[in-house]
Amino acid sequence: MSIQHFRVALIPFFAAFCLPVFAHPETLVKVKDAEDQLGARVGYIELDLNSGKILESFRPEERFPMMSTFKVLLCGAVLSRVDAGQEQLGRRIHYSQNDLVEYSPVTEKHLTDGMTVRELCSAAITMSDNTAANLLLTTIGGPKELTAFLHNMGDHVTRLDRWEPELNEAIPNDERDTTMPAAMATTLRKLLTGELLTLASRQQLIDWMEADKVAGPLLRSALPAGWFIADKSGASERGSRGIIAALGPDGKPSRIVVIYTTGSQATMDERNRQIAEIGASLIKHW
Rank of each mutant, 00 (worst) to 15 (best):
F17R: 07
G242R: 00
D250V: 06
P60H: 12
M180L: 08
M115I: 09
K30A: 10
W286G: 00
G85L: 06
A222N: 12
H24M: 07
T193Y: 15
E102G: 05
D113G: 11
L218K: 01
A84D: 14
S2C: 11
E277W: 02
D129E: 00
V72G: 06
L146I: 05
F149N: 02
G141R: 08
N152Y: 06
P253T: 03
G251R: 08
S221W: 05
F70A: 06
E175T: 11
P60I: 10
D129G: 00
Q203T: 15
D48E: 11
P105L: 04
I283Y: 10
Q86V: 14
L79P: 00
T186P: 04
D250Y: 11
K53Q: 14
T187A: 04
I206A: 09
G234V: 00
T178P: 00
D174C: 03
R59S: 09
W163D: 05
E87S: 02
H94L: 13
Q86C: 13
D161C: 02
L137E: 01
N168D: 08
V29M: 14
K30N: 07
A246R: 00
P165L: 05
A16S: 14
A182E: 10
A211F: 04
P249T: 02
L111G: 05
P181R: 00
I171S: 15
A185T: 08
E108C: 07
R91V: 02
A15D: 01
P224L: 01
V78L: 05
G90E: 14
Q265R: 13
A222H: 10
R189V: 04
I11R: 04
V21L: 06
S240Y: 06
S254M: 13
A211V: 04
N173T: 10
T186K: 15
E166W: 08
E87W: 02
M66W: 00
G43R: 00
E237Q: 14
D231G: 03
Q86W: 13
P105S: 04
L135V: 11
A40G: 15
M268N: 06
P181H: 00
Q203A: 12
E210V: 14
Q86L: 12
R63K: 07
F17V: 11
D207V: 10
G239S: 05
R176E: 04
G239C: 03
R220V: 01
Y95F: 14
D83N: 02
A133G: 10
I3M: 08
K144R: 14
V8D: 15
I244A: 02
K32W: 09
H110N: 11
V8T: 14
Q88V: 12
E164V: 00
T267K: 08
T186I: 09
E61R: 14
V8S: 15
E166N: 12
L136A: 03
I283M: 07
A34T: 05
S96R: 13
D207I: 09
L55C: 04
G226K: 07
P25T: 09
E46D: 01
R63G: 01
V258G: 01
A182P: 04
G43D: 00
W163C: 08
T126C: 11
W227F: 02
N173S: 13
F70L: 05
R159C: 02
E108D: 11
P217L: 05
E56R: 04
G226L: 01
Q203N: 15
V42G: 00
G85T: 07
T112M: 02
A211P: 02
L19S: 14
P172A: 10
R162H: 08
M127G: 03
M67I: 04
Q88D: 12
T139S: 15
Q88T: 14
G226R: 05
G251K: 09
R162G: 06
A182K: 15
D207G: 14
S254K: 09
F58S: 05
I93V: 13
P172Q: 07
W227S: 00
T267C: 09
R238N: 15
E61G: 13
P217T: 07
D177G: 01
T107V: 07
T262L: 08
R238A: 13
D36C: 14
R81S: 10
M67R: 15
A132V: 00
R273I: 07
E145H: 13
E61K: 14
L10A: 12
R255S: 01
S122N: 12
L136I: 06
I93G: 00
L73P: 10
I243M: 04
S254D: 12
A40E: 10
L19V: 15
T186S: 14
P65N: 03
G39R: 15
W163Q: 07
G234D: 04
R176P: 02
G251L: 07
A225R: 13
D129V: 00
L89D: 02
T178K: 01
K144Y: 12
K213A: 13
V117S: 01
S221V: 08
E210K: 10
T107S: 13
E166A: 12
N98K: 15
V101S: 07
A9C: 11
